[in-house]
């Protein structure tokens, strides 16, 4: 018998959103060993990691679709459905950018110039710190729903988002350093490769940007 009481409840998007956050960060995190392999010219390992990244990006996509299916317009939620969908989309872009970056590097067999390797890995690492902080913040969603987006829990998440902002600002300055260093030596390399190196740096920076925008979206949820 169709049950009226059970019918009141839509499928909650909260735990799938947290799972999506987990998958996306797991995917982005792979860029660290990926570039370590690139720096050491270990293409076999890089290719292996590239396929793991693709797989994780696909999984995140599946979860994204599932969450969208859960959110029909007839739902009434404590926060606007549109804001949750936006959060999901920005979060998903982290995985997309990760796939793009690894795709360009593998597709063009792009070497990271030796003099840049330390700055490069440092930059990538900090960007991944941003996605990690974004994941941590999003994983407070269930606690936020429990506490009615108010009080101590909301303050806690606000603080997490502030930290995320600070990390993102650091990635910006690391990105600028890296570009400057590349600029100094760019004449020694094939111009097309250099163009793609710049492009790769931009895309890696965008991963941190997306992480920051996840924080912005989360902040919007707090303000309702």
């Amino acid at each position: 018998m169709a049950n009226l009481l059970a019918g009141v409840f839509g499928k909650s998007p909260v735990m799938p959103l947290e799972r999506h956050a987990e998958l996306v960060h797991k995917c982005a995190k792979k860029l660290v060993p990926f570039f370590e392999a690139i720096v050491q010219k270990d293409w076999d390992t890089a290719l292996e990691i590239r396929s793991v990244i693709e797989q994780l990006e696909n999984e995140a996509d599946e979860v994204k679709k599932d969450i969208r299916m859960r959110l029909p317009k007839s739902l009434f939620m404590p926060v606007p459905r549109e804001d949750l969908l936006e959060l999901l989309l920005v979060q998903d872009k982290i995985a997309n950018r990760t796939k793009d970056v690894s795709g360009i590097v593998v597709g063009r067999r792009l070497d990271v110039p030796d003099p840049l390797s330390e700055l490069w890995l440092d930059f990538v690492g900090r960007c991944i710190d941003a996605t990690k902080q974004a994941r941590k913040s999003v994983q407070e969603l269930d606690e936020l729903f429990t506490s009615g987006f108010r009080g101590a829990e909301a303050d806690l998440v606000s603080a997490m988002i502030d930290k995320l902002d600070r990390i993102e600002t650091e990635t910006d300055s690391k990105e600028a350093h890296l570009r400057a260093a590349l600029f100094k030596i760019e004449n020694e390399f094939n111009p097309v490769d250099v163009m793609f190196l710049y492009q790769t740096i931009t895309k890696i920076g965008e991963i941190a940007d997306m992480a920051e925008r996840v924080g912005r979206r989360l902040e919007l949820l707090l303000s309702h």
């Binding site: 019918g7 009141v8 409840f9 839509g10 909650s12 029909p72 739902l75 009434f76 404590p78 009615g148």
Partner: peptide, 8 residues
């Protein structure tokens, strides 16, 4: 604001 998703 106590329930994540209510189907109206």
């Amino acid at each position: 604001r106590g329930i994540e998703a209510i189907d109206l």
